[in-house]
Amino acid sequence: MLNGIPINFYIMLSAVLFIIGVVGVMARRNAIIIFMCIELMLNAVNLLLVAFSTLHNDASGQVFVFFIMAVAAAEVAVGLAILSMVYRNFKSIDIDLLSRLKN
């Protein structure tokens, strides 16, 4: 009864999710939202890895997704610590303010 879905659909869905993440990174100034958009991009890639892992009936892809989740968790912990430091010093997390670093 269960019918397969062509891999093309998963590729397109992942591409759309990834590009929504890219647009979010470019269009927003709140550093936390930018972080969340990066998470969205990571998840688009994860979804594609799982789709291909199922397509080829190979568990390696799912193990890779597992590792990507671990790296994402580490990245978020360190990134949010940096952001809270930035907020403590600037009283804002507008990333355009951080350009004063170059002066």
Binding site: M1, L2, N3, G4, I5, P6, I7, N8, Y10, I11, M12, A15, A51, S53, T54, L55, N57, D58, A59, Q62
Partner: peptide, 18 residues
């Protein structure tokens, strides 16, 4: 990516790797 092959995913109890 439009040219990717129209492969059908193996689904529905056949795959146990997850």
């Amino acid at each position: 990516l439009r040219g990717a092959e129209q492969l059908q995913l193996v689904q529905g109890g056949a795959s146990q790797i997850g």
